[in-house]
Amino acid sequence: MTTATRLALAPLTLSLAVTFSGAVVANDHHAGPNFSGTLTGGVLNVQDRDADLWAFKAEAGLGGVYTVNDGLRIRYDLVADFANAINSVDEQTWTPGGHRQDDGEIYMRTARVLLMTDYGTIGLQPRVPSGFWGHIYRNVDVFEYNRFHGQTGQNAIFGQAEQGSDVFSYGSPRFGGFQFIGAVLTTNAQNDQDFDVVTGRLVYDQGPLNFGVGHTQVRRPGIDDLHRTSFGIGYDFGMIQLGGVYEHNDDRENNESPADFDAWGVNVSASLSDAWSVSLGYAENDKNLELDNDALVGTIRRHFNHNVYAFLEAGRYDRTDNNVAAGLSVSF
C-alpha cells in the first residue's frame, strides 16, 4: 500500500474506530463532538519574492471524549488543515504540514484515537502534530510564520519535525508533574522495517516551570542510523516568559553529512498589558557543507480578546531569505 493510499485511508480508519467505540459505549457519557478551528491570515513578504496574501494557519475539526467507566475514556480528534489548499507554496515559503508535493490539497493534520486509563494513555494516531516537538520545543515555537522546525523549508533551524504520521504511543500517568511518553512511527511502509522512528521523552510541567528531555532514533532514505537528543526548558515569571532548547543530531554513519549538526534557540516573551504582547527569539545551527544558518525573529501582537489578535512579525536569517508577516488570527 502506498503512502498516499494510507493517508487517504487514515480518516476512514479513524471514523471506523470511533464508530466502533461509540457502539461499545453508546449508553455511557459522551462529551462532544466539539467543533473548533483557527484562521490566521494576512500578508507574507519574503525577500526576493512578491508579497502575497497568506494563510499562516487554517484549521478546523472536531473532537470528543467517551467515558466508558471510571477507568477508561476514549478521546477522538479529526482536524483538517486548509493552508496548503489556500497558499501558493514555492521553495522560498512553507505551509503547515511541510508537504510541498501536496500543494493545493487539504492536509489532514490530526486523525487519532486515545485510550486513556488509570495506567496511562495509548495513542492510535495515523496523523498527529508531534508531541515531541510540542513538549520540548514549545518555549521557542511562539511565532506565526518563523517556527524553526524541520518542515519549515529553507529556513529550518532544527531537525525535529512538527508533524508525525503512523504513530503508536504510550504516555504514563503524571507523577508530581513528571510524565514519560514513548512512541514508534512507521513513516515508510515499503522498506521492510515496521518501525522507522523510535522516540521517548521525559517531561515536567508544573507551576511556572516546564522542561523536557528526549531521544529519537530515525531511519529514513539515505540515513539509516540518525540519533537526535533534545532538551528544552521554560519559566513563566508572570509578565516575562523565558525559554530555550538545544538539539544534537548524530548521523552515526556519516558525521560529515548535513544531518549531523547541533542547533539551539532562546526566546523571551513579555505580556505588556491585556492588549499587547511581544516576543523576541534567536536560533542557530552548525550544519556541514556551508548549510549553517541563524535567525533573529520578533513579533508584536494586539489582543482584542482571547480568540482574536493582530500581529506584525519579522525574521532575519544569515543564509536564507528574510521575511515580514502581518495579519489577523481568529479562533473558535
Score class of each variant (00 low, 15 high):
Thr299Asn: 13
Val89Pro: 02
Val65Phe: 10
Asp70Met: 03
Gly61Arg: 07
Gln190Lys: 07
Asp205Ile: 01
Trp264Cys: 03
Asp236His: 06
Leu44His: 05
Leu202Gln: 02
Phe237Met: 10
Met239Arg: 15
Phe332Trp: 15
Asp141Cys: 08
Met1Ala: 12
Glu313His: 07
Gly64Asp: 09
His135Asp: 13
Val297Ile: 15
Phe304Trp: 14
Gln217Tyr: 05
Arg301Gln: 14
Val297Cys: 08
Phe148Tyr: 13
Arg73Asp: 09
Arg228Phe: 00
Gln179Ser: 14
Val308His: 00
Leu53Asp: 11
Thr187Gln: 15
Arg112Glu: 14
Leu114Lys: 05
Ala156Val: 01
Phe143Trp: 01
His306Asn: 09
Gln160Cys: 04
Leu53Tyr: 09
Thr152Phe: 06
Gly182Thr: 11
Val18His: 00
Thr93Trp: 08
Val25Leu: 14
Ala10Met: 12
Phe304Leu: 13
Leu9Arg: 11
Gly232Trp: 01
Val89Asn: 09
Asp90Gly: 15
Arg75Met: 12
Asp236Asn: 15
Ala58Arg: 02
Pro96Asp: 06
Asp166Tyr: 06
Phe148Asp: 03
Ala275Glu: 11
His215Tyr: 14
Phe56Met: 08
Thr95Val: 14
Arg201Asn: 01
Val79Asn: 06
Leu62Ile: 13
Phe148Leu: 12
Leu312Pro: 05
Gln47Ala: 10
Phe237Ala: 09
Gly164Glu: 08
Ser130Gln: 07
Leu114Glu: 12
Asp192Gln: 13
Asn87Met: 03
His215Gly: 07
Thr320Arg: 14
Val140Gly: 03
Gly182Tyr: 02
Gly222Lys: 08
Tyr317Ile: 06
Leu296Ala: 13
Val68Leu: 06
Leu9Tyr: 12
Ala31Asn: 13
Thr19Tyr: 06
Pro221Arg: 07
Thr187Leu: 11
Ala83Asn: 08
Gln179Trp: 03
Arg316Gln: 04
Arg147Gln: 14
Tyr235Gln: 04
Gly97Cys: 06
Asp48Arg: 13
His29Arg: 11
Gly41Asp: 06
Thr40Asn: 13
Gly244Ile: 03
Phe158Thr: 01
Asp70Tyr: 03
Ile300Trp: 01
Asp118Phe: 07
Tyr145Pro: 01
Ile106Trp: 05
Asp262Gln: 11
Val266Ser: 03
Val184Asn: 01
Thr299Gln: 15
Asp48Cys: 00
Ala85Tyr: 03
Ala111Tyr: 01
Phe311Cys: 09
Val142Ala: 04
Ser169Cys: 04
Gly159Ser: 10
Ala189Gln: 10
Thr186Ser: 15
Phe231Ser: 05
Gly131Asp: 13
Arg302Tyr: 15
Gln101Met: 05
Gln125Ser: 09
Gly177Gln: 12
Trp54Thr: 10
Arg6Lys: 11
Gly232Lys: 02
Pro129Met: 10
Ile86Thr: 09
Gly207Lys: 05
Phe20Lys: 09
Ala55Thr: 03
Gln151Val: 00
Val197Met: 00
Ala275Cys: 02
